[in-house]
Design a protein around this nucleic acid. Structure first.
Length: 545
DNA sequence: AAAGCAATAT
DNA sequence: AATATTGCTT
């Protein structure tokens, strides 16, 4: 059965009580999945054979909201048979290596999150049914799910908003941007999902079934066939599950996919982009590489050159190469050598370098350069009230005017709206090797990754405030843990901490970096006492410089 | 030939 | 919007 929108609206504690049909020939795996589902207050009925399941469906047709079918290669026919007979029952096929015109891939093993989210397919289906509540107010349901909703969109978009928000609410650890909304309703887009396979969370989502509803919306179309799915996703995924439109037979799926290819050719299809950069997980120590177009896949017709997706990781490599070479020596060919990214061309690098340089130039206005490059110049202005950021080496403080943000070059992100990151003193977090804020710190003040600038002659009586109230440091922490790409490089490297400490010890006259607090008088005195130094001169009286 | 830049195309 | 391409100069 298909659960109608009306049903959902009246379903008080949805998705509790969702009736799940679990068809799995492997009783062991069924025994693993079932309790997980039951923990989520789903009502699970397991079946070992398609026939049993079909009998159950035909006899208790109203009894299931969603089906999960684990299908082995040998039982594929059974699977199709089940799909046909199951008609409108949203069915998630959990399968081995093949992709059956997928609406969604779920990486196995099926985690709690993934299982928990199966209700979303019921919602999706409910609101995409021909005579669903398309024209009905959706607010109640939205409220019920405690979802956020755009208020200025038309009804269709609202519907999408529900579904998308719902998905996002479950995947709120994933990045979610406005543009993403219409690309991957349920899970991170394939582009992301496959790229970050090593994060253990990512799923690949391909959406194929509601083009008629969305019109020109940017849902990620299913344009991959088996080979694409494998080439793009198989790096480390052992198995995927596949969500197919329950109302479609395999043939129909195929037809729809063809249409999707046509529709998405104009540029927004991500799933199918053989041109996309795919890189192996760096955690495995492999060099990233640019995937060559797959001649067997949907990219066959397009002669476009590979379009490099400068992912944060790729960009990081780029930046590392540039820094290794030094800005002056960094030319495309050398950067290319250092980056060791298979398939990347010098042109790609040159293009990126051009942008990179322009950006750097833009965010370090000449005015500032002149002011800071000659600290002995005409009485450098010091802003005691201004925030100072301590980045390693810690004495290269960056001074800037609050509110004076420069545009940040990065992927579009709703994090732009969270630029008010000031006011978390003493959090010595930085990304030592990622000085270029690429999506990772979209809110970061430009100066933070611009040219290092020396404070004007910091002496024993530095004007730079050192206590917490004088500092406004950024607080990247939340961002780091929220974004999957960030966890990647969030390592307050010990060497750096050591370095900072060493520097602080060797140059005691400099202001301490954020995060390092001067020892308390008491602890110093007791330590001196412990070492037998009892004759301590009184501290110098405070004086102005 | 490679680099770098700006304008333009996709 | 991001990236590629092109055309030009160095």
């Amino acid at each position: 059965m298909i659960c109608s929108a009306d049903d959902l609206l009246e379903w008080k504690d949805f998705p509790k009580g969702l009736r799940v049909l679990l068809l799995d020939e492997d009783s062991v795996s069924a025994a693993e999945i079932k309790p997980k589902l039951e923990e989520m207050d789903y009502i699970v009925s397991t079946f070992c054979t398609a026939d049993e399941a079909l009998i159950a469906i035909s006899s208790e047709h109203e009894s299931f909201h969603v089906a999960i079918v684990e299908v082995s290669t040998s039982s594929q026919q059974d699977c199709f048979k089940f799909l046909e007979s199951a008609e409108d029952l949203p069915t998630i096929i959990s399968k081995g290596h093949e992709c059956l015109g997928a609406a969604e891939f779920l990486q196995k093993p099926l985690s709690e999150d993934k299982l928990r989210n199966i209700w979303q397919h019921v919602v999706h289906k409910a609101f995409n049914a021909k005579d669903s509540a398309l024209s009905k107010p959706v607010k109640p349901f939205n409220d019920m799910l405690q979802l956020q909703q755009e208020t200025n969109e038309d009804e269709d978009k609202k519907l999408m908003g529900i579904e998308i928000s719902a998905y996002n609410s479950e995947f709120d650890h994933e990045q979610s941007t406005v543009s993403d909304k219409f690309q991957a309703p349920s899970t991170p887009q394939l582009k992301q999902g496959c790229r970050f396979l090593d994060d253990g969370q990512s799923n690949c989502s391909l959406e194929k079934e509601h083009g008629d509803l969305e019109g020109e919306s940017k849902s990620v179309e299913t344009t991959c066939n088996n080979s694409v799915a494998e080439t793009t996703c198989d790096n480390s995924v052992e198995e995927v599950s596949v969500m197919v439109d329950p109302s479609l037979t395999p043939k129909e799926v195929a037809v729809k996919e063809e249409n999707s290819v046509e529709r998405s050719r104009s540029g927004n299809s991500l799933s199918c982009h053989p041109q996309k950069v795919e890189k192996k997980a760096e955690s495995k120590g492999d060099n990233p590489r640019i995937e060559a177009p797959n001649p067997n896949s949907c990219g066959r017709k397009t002669n476009r050159k590979i379009k490099v997706d400068w992912t944060p990781e790729l960009h990081k490599r780029f930046v590392q190469a540039v820094e290794q070479l030094g800005v002056d020596q960094a030319i495309p060919s050398r950067i290319l050598d250092l980056m060791k990214v298979e398939g990347l061309t010098r042109h790609n690098v040159a293009s990126h370098l051009q942008k990179y340089r322009m950006h750097r130039r833009h965010i370090v206005p000449k005015d500032d350069d002149r002011r800071w490059q000659h600290p002995r110049g005409p009485t450098p202005r010091v802003y005691p009230h201004k925030p100072i950021m301590a980045y390693p080496p810690y004495h290269t403080n960056h001074s800037f005017t609050p509110n004076q943000f420069y545009p940040v070059w990065g992927h579009p992100s709703n994090h732009h709206s969270s630029m008010q990151m000031w006011g978390h003193p003493g959090f010595p977090t930085w990304h030592p090797q990622d000085s270029w804020s690429w999506n990772t710190h979209p809110w970061m003040h430009a100066d933070a990754w611009g040219r290092p600038m020396m404070p004007p002659s910091p002496g024993p009586c530095s004007n730079f405030p050192q206590n917490a109230s004088g500092f406004h440091s950024l607080h990247p922490f939340e961002e780091c843990i929220n974004s999957p790409s960030n966890s990647f490089d969030f390592h307050p490297a010990e060497e750096l901490i050591d370095k900072v400490v060493r520097e602080a010890v060797s140059k005691p006259w400099l202001p301490l970096p954020l995060g390092l607090k001067p020892p308390s008088t008491e602890s110093v005195l007791s330590e001196l006492h412990r070492q037998g130094i009892c004759n301590i001169p009184p501290p110098p009286t405070h004086h102005q410089c």
